[in-house]
């Protein structure tokens, strides 16, 4: 599917430090439409993460990707649907 096009290509190189530590880890951003996974962990503990946790996206929860459009990702979690952008999704480890 379409990836986030707004980010410059060099981004991956400048973020090598983070990329190294998370290279092998699959994030929510990597999932495709219709795919389901469990949330393992969050790489950061910022306000956005606190908010999505309160909204129900918590460790151990099973999520399904409903739609991806531009930078937006619609995630279904039990009976609610939450939109997050890919810059938040890349901080969520899934398996």
């Amino acid at each position: 599917m379409n990836t986030f096009q707004g980010a410059p290509k060099e981004k991956k190189l400048t973020d090598t430090a983070i990329a190294d530590s998370t290279a092998q880890k699959k994030t929510l951003k990597d999932l495709s439409i219709g795919e389901a996974a469990h949330i393992v962990d969050f790489f950061k503990e910022n306000d956005a993460v606190k908010k999505i946790e309160a909204m129900g996206l918590r460790r151990g929860k099973r999520i399904t990707i409903i739609q991806k459009l531009g930078r937006g990702i619609v995630v279904k979690i039990s009976n609610s649907r939450i939109v997050i952008t890919s810059d938040v999704a890349k901080n969520i480890e899934v398996e």
């Binding site: 707004g6 956005a48 609610s80 649907r81 939450i82 939109v83 952008t85």
Partner: peptide
């Protein structure tokens, strides 16, 4: 930069 967003889609 444009900020991220998080929101719920109600039923």
């Amino acid at each position: 930069k444009l900020s991220h967003f998080v929101m719920e889609l109600p039923p």
